Computed example of a mutant assay.
Amino acid sequence: EDLVLYSAFSHRGVLGDPAAVYRRAREIAPHLRGVWVVRDPERARLAGLLPPGTEYVVPGGPRFRQLAARAAYFVNNVNWPDVPGKRPGSVHIQTHQGTPLKYMGADLLGKPGARHGVDVPGMLRRADRWDHSLVANRHSELVWERAYPCRFGSARTGSPRNDVLVGAAPDAGAAVRARLGVPADHTVVLYAPTRREYRRGGHVERFDPARLAADLGEGHTLVVRLHPSLAAGPARGLGLAELHRRGVLVDATDEPYAEDVLLAADVLVTDYSALMFDYANLDRPIVVHADDFDAYTASRGVYFDVRAEPPGHVARSYRELAWLLASGTWRDAESARLRAAFRARFCEFDDGWAAERV
């Protein structure tokens, strides 16, 4: 029947590319019945990840097994750990979680630290269920086919969640800024670091965010968004929550939709986060802070050297980062040239119609 099971980020709620596909399907294919698999409905509801009226099911129960046995389509941005063997005739769509910079799938076999706790053979067995793997660029297509040497076909749809970013108006993030308490005339600097595999817990504070907020000076607001895996970890207890409470910066880690935070930013500062590929769709400046690239590469592995093919200027120390932002170099002609080349390569299939294609 026309039943679609959706899930995102291990059943956290209505998020990511699956959410974008779900919303578009409700508009142009209302005959499809979309049901979300949500592990903790109450927590998801409180976090804004389960909108009113959304049909959902809790994984593992009899109703979930009944729906899984009847569903025609399965849409997820991770693997389905609790779905039995693939039923003949069903279609599994893997949206992924963005363009890969760091090693994934089978490539983790050579990185013991990064694959700790990850059942790579089991991951590949589940990936064999995929029928379609969504890609935003040919780089992703090649990487997914290498990292998951399975039987799926690559679909050059673009990333559905990025539809809202493509061609967004300059004031598209105004409502988000207001919700975050950012003055309308401020320049918003978004700092979005990723996790590290070479440190237990994944959090490594590369510089003091309070210092960066101070160095940015008047007329600027520093917004920090940690990697989702660090949201409930010690990083929040190392002063970020307190700095937010005191108004030194804005902690946007708990904002449910990353796209909203990206829309609110005038410039992205990141290290090796996949958010850089999404943010590039806005054609706004990006600064890469790569002061531990060698350690990150040794522990996790990367598919290309982002310092050699960056989306903007690269800082190899906090001093360089502070200078780039204070001098205005972050938005100069060279930054625009680097960003244009990056966008041509990595925003290749993102044209605002990805969700509709799916």
Rank of each mutant, 00 (worst) to 15 (best):
R161V: 02
M123K: 10
A322R: 13
I93Y: 01
A274S: 15
R70E: 15
E55L: 14
F207P: 00
L338V: 08
V188M: 02
A136I: 04
L190H: 09
Q97M: 15
P100G: 06
V261P: 00
T187W: 03
L109D: 02
T187C: 08
G217H: 09
S317F: 08
L50T: 06
P149H: 07
V38T: 11
L275S: 04
C150V: 15
R24F: 00
D251M: 09
G110P: 02
G85I: 07
V78Q: 09
R161T: 02
D332L: 09
D17W: 00
S317C: 08
R300G: 04
F342C: 10
P112A: 09
A315H: 04
R33Y: 11
Y279K: 01
R129P: 01
Y318A: 10
G117R: 06
P41K: 09
P193K: 04
V135K: 00
V14Y: 00
E242H: 05
F342A: 13
E309C: 10
R246F: 04
L222D: 02
V118R: 14
G217A: 07
A326F: 06
F349D: 08
S10N: 14
T95W: 02
A29K: 08
R87G: 05
S10F: 10
G16Q: 03
L216K: 05
E334L: 13
T329H: 13
L238N: 12
S327F: 11
V35W: 12
P84N: 06
L338Q: 15
T99D: 01
Y148L: 07
R87Y: 07
G312S: 12
L216N: 04
A8P: 02
A8L: 03
A241R: 15
V269L: 13
W36E: 12
N137S: 15
Q66D: 15
G352D: 03
S327H: 13
A235L: 03
P81T: 13
G181W: 09
A68Q: 12
E197H: 14
V35E: 10
H203Y: 15
E255A: 08
D185S: 06
F346T: 07
P228D: 03
W330N: 05
L190A: 10
R319K: 14
A214P: 03
R115T: 07
H227W: 13
W330M: 10
P41N: 11
H220F: 08
Q97V: 14
E42S: 12
R177M: 08
P170A: 06
H244S: 11
L5K: 01
P183R: 01
A308R: 14
R65Q: 14
A232C: 08
L321I: 05
F277S: 01
F304A: 03
E356M: 04
V21N: 01
A235F: 02
L243H: 00
R70V: 05
P88N: 06
R43P: 08
I28A: 13
A290R: 06
D332C: 10
D82E: 14
V288G: 05
V189H: 04
L324N: 04
